[in-house]
Design a protein around this nucleic acid. Sequence first.
DNA 1: AACTCGGGGGG
DNA 2: CCCCCAGAGTT
Length: 376
Amino acid sequence: MDLAQRQRFFSTNLLAWYDVHKRDLPWRRNKNPYYIWISEIMLQQTRVDTVIPYWHRFIEKFPTIEALADAPEDEVLKAWEGLGYYSRARNLQSAVREVMETYGGIVPDTKPEISGLKGVGPYTAGAILSIAYNKPEPAVDGNVMRVLSRYFLIEEDIMKGSTRAYMESLIYQLIPEGRAGDFNQALMELGAMVCTPKSPHCLTCPVMEQCAGRLEGMEESLPVKTKAKPPRPEHRLAAVIAGTGERAGQFLIRRRPDTGLLARMWELPHVAAPEPGMAFAEGGEAAGEALRAGLAAEAGLDIQPLRWLMLAEHTFSHIHWNMGVYVCELAPGPDAAAAGAGDSGPPPGCAWVDAASWREYAFPNVFLRIVKEYLK
DNA sequence: AACTCGGGGGG
DNA sequence: CCCCCAGAGTT
C-alpha cells in the first residue's frame, strides 16, 4: 500500500469512527460560530471536562457577541476565574468588540480576517473556519500532532514551528471533500480518547492497521518533544489585612497591574521574601518584619503582623510560588487613617471586602484558597 | 526560537 | 511527582 492509499485509509476510517463515537459536547449541538469560538478559546491548554461548566456559565451570562462586547471587563474576568491564562478572556473581549465594529457582529469566515482577531492564532483560526463554516483549513493542536506523528511516523520535534507547518500541509491533503469540520474534530477526538499520550489504546483504534508508529513499535515514544524548563521557585510573603473598628470583619484586597502575570486580577497584598527561608518561617520574627517593611515600601501600607496563617504553594507554567501568609492589621496611629482605617476609602487600587462581597471580585486560584482558609 | 502566560487531571 | 492539555502574544 503506497502513501496515497494510506492517507485515504486514514481519512476514511477516522471519519467513520468519529461518526459513531463522537462525544455529545455542548458546543457541538449547533454551528453557532460564537459558541464554537468561545469553546476553542477555553479549550486552549485546557481539558474538555474542565471547560464544559465554564462554557455553560459563560454562554448563559454572555449569550451573544453583542452581550460580550458590551459587558464590563470585570464581569468577563470573573466568569473566567479559575480557568487560567486570563489574557485569553481579555483578548476574547477585545476581539468580539472588533467583530462588532468591523464585521457587523458576524464572525468573519476568511483566514486573514479571523486570524487578525486578538487571541486567534493558527490553531483557533482553523478550528473556527472548519467547524463553524466547514472550510478546508487545518487545526493543528497537540492531539493532532501526536496522532499524525504516530500514524505517519514523523520524528521531528513537535515543539518546532517547521514541524507544525509540515503537519498543516499534510492536513490539507487529508481533509475529505466537504467534511473539514468533522475531520478536524475527529483527529482531536482520536487524540483525546484513543491515541493518548501514555499507553495509547491501539486495539480500539480505527487506523491501527496502517499506523507506521504502531507497526514499528514506536507508539509510546512518539511524538518527539523537547521538555520544558522546570518552573523557577519564588519565595513571597502575603498579608490578610483584617479591618478593625468600623471595618471589623473586612479585609483588604488589591488589583494587579494591567500587564504581566495575572493581569488585572485581584489578590492579597504580597512582597518578595528577602530570604527564601522566610516563606516557610511559620511566624518567625524576621519574616513578619520583612512583610511589614515590604508593604510599607512597596504599597504604602503600614501593617502589623498578628499570626501566621498558612504556607500557600502554587505552580504556574514557569514559576513556583512558596508564599508564607500572615494575618495582619493596619498599624494604629496617624498612618492608619491615611491607609483607610478611618473615614477615607481604601488605598488606591485596593478595596475592603467582607466574607460575602469578596466573591464579586476575580481572584487567581491561589488566593481563592488562602481567603477560604482565612474565613474558615 | 525562546519566553511568558494558569490550572488541573491522569498515570 | 511528572507530563500534558482543542495555544497565543511578545521579544
